[in-house]
């Protein structure tokens, strides 16, 4: 038996077929939507995003040429602009939102789901780790950053010549892969499997 997480309506949930989804009758929240081989796919997509993220951090992101001078910046530079004076807090916040939290979330997901996708017992502390990854979900803002880049590009387009570096494409791919991965995630199924396998 489960309760709808948003409106508390009670259901005895039958086994939902893979590829189907169960919705709450009262508030239409998706209760569960199992997908075939979802755990393995999530682990693979999360590992892909992790590698893309590392590439995105260290390669140059954007290149700007104006008046014969070239300025290259990586994501680290974007974070560090705020690093002096009254803007230190903002530097930490921006770094956390676009790099640290997305990375932590990917690591946490791999840690929780990789053993389970092999059919092993869940790793130690898998439960608090998965809870943590769900809690930071709204705060990882990689996709918002990409839109911000687009806006910034148009703002300086008149001022100087701009070209996109390899990190930009890595980051754009990362956003797509993360979206795909979230599409496969079914919170209820993961919790049920975690509880089941622990015994």
């Amino acid at each position: 038996m489960i309760a709808c997480p948003t409106c508390d309506a009670l259901y005895t949930l039958p086994d939902v077929a893979e590829g189907a989804r169960a919705r709450c009758r009262r508030c239409h929240t998706v209760l569960t939507a199992p997908r075939k081989g979802a755990m393995t796919r999530i682990v693979m997509l999360a590992s892909t995003s992790f590698i893309l993220m590392l590439a995105a951090i260290f390669f140059p992101f954007l290149e700007l040429t104006a008046a014969g001078r070239t300025q290259r910046s990586s994501i680290m530079d974007v974070v560090l602009v705020f690093a002096d004076g009254p803007f230190v807090g903002l530097a930490i916040a921006v770094g956390a939102l676009i790099v640290v939290l997305p990375l932590l979330r990917l690591l946490a997901l791999i840690y929780v789901l990789a053993p389970m996708s092999f059919g092993w017992r869940p790793a130690r502390d898998a439960i608090p780790v998965f809870r943590f990854s769900e809690r930071i979900k709204p705060w990882s803002m990689a996709e918002i950053f990409i839109v911000g880049v687009a806006v910034a590009l148009i703002k300086v387009a008149g001022l100087a010549h701009l070209s996109l570096g390899p990190a930009f494409w890595a980051f754009a791919a990362l956003v797509l892969v993360v979206a795909l991965k979230d599409n496969f995630m079914c919170r209820l199924t993961i919790w049920k499997t975690l509880e089941h396998r622990r015994q």
Binding site: L62, V78, V94, M141, I144, F145, G148, A152
Partner: peptide, 21 residues
């Protein structure tokens, strides 16, 4: 709500990029 952060990121990107003395 999260999408409001765009402007902060735009400022950060612009400030990192446009440092041409």
């Amino acid at each position: 709500g999260r999408w409001s952060m765009i402007d902060v990121f735009v400022v950060a990107i612009l400030a990192a990029l446009v440092q041409l003395d």
